[in-house]
């Protein structure tokens, strides 16, 4: 059952990911954003299969909720006209295919040769309680640092969106 679910979620995530990048039917950023939401939800499903329940919840709440709403908000704000079909630059197309193909080749090559070893006898369970314990003991300093990062980002955004940006 879990294996079937893995293949369903993984296949959907890959298809939707492809449609984010290269949708043959529509070049509008809104379609890309919607397919990105679908990809993120599929990845949340994969997180559940990995027993990372807290991460799955955060993935849906923060990514599919907050971040993608922000994306859609900016797309609507800019009111981009339907993108006229610009000619795909051959150079960037070839460059993109070569670079992503090279990365794919290198990763798969090493994955096939590397001994992955046996999975742990006691796989990790990522519920809220163990994750929270870890977060507030061993990782307390990075946790606080992240709060400062969020504060700095907020101040930066307020400053950047002022009308008279010099």
């Amino acid at each position: 059952m879990q294996d079937i679910l893995f293949y369903v979620f993984a296949g959907l995530a890959l298809i939707c990911g492809f449609l984010v990048v290269a949708n043959p039917f529509s070049r509008s950023p809104v379609t890309s954003a919607m397919f990105l939401v679908l990809t993120i939800v599929c990845l949340a499903g994969l997180f559940v299969l990995l027993h990372a329940f807290f991460l799955a919840a955060v993935q849906v709440l923060v990514y599919a909720g907050a971040v993608m709403v922000l994306f859609l908000f900016v797309i609507m704000l800019l009111d981009l006209k339907v993108e006229e079909r610009r000619k795909l630059k051959v150079f960037s197309m070839v460059g993109g295919l070569i670079s992503s193909g090279a990365i794919l080749f290198i990763f798969l090559h090493h994955l096939l040769r590397a001994p992955l070893g046996e999975p742990a006898t006691l796989p990790a369970e990522g519920g809220t309680i163990p994750l929270g314990k870890l977060l507030f003991t061993q990782y307390l300093l990075p946790f606080e640092a992240v709060s400062i990062v969020l504060l700095v980002a907020m101040v930066g955004v307020v400053l950047l969106s002022k009308k008279d940006l010099k």
Binding site: L14, S100, I103, L104
Partner: peptide, 13 residues
């Protein structure tokens, strides 16, 4: 890996 490569392709093209 495949998702990552799709992302690279999108950034480049």
């Amino acid at each position: 890996i495949i998702l990552f490569c799709l992302g690279v392709l999108g950034v480049m093209t």
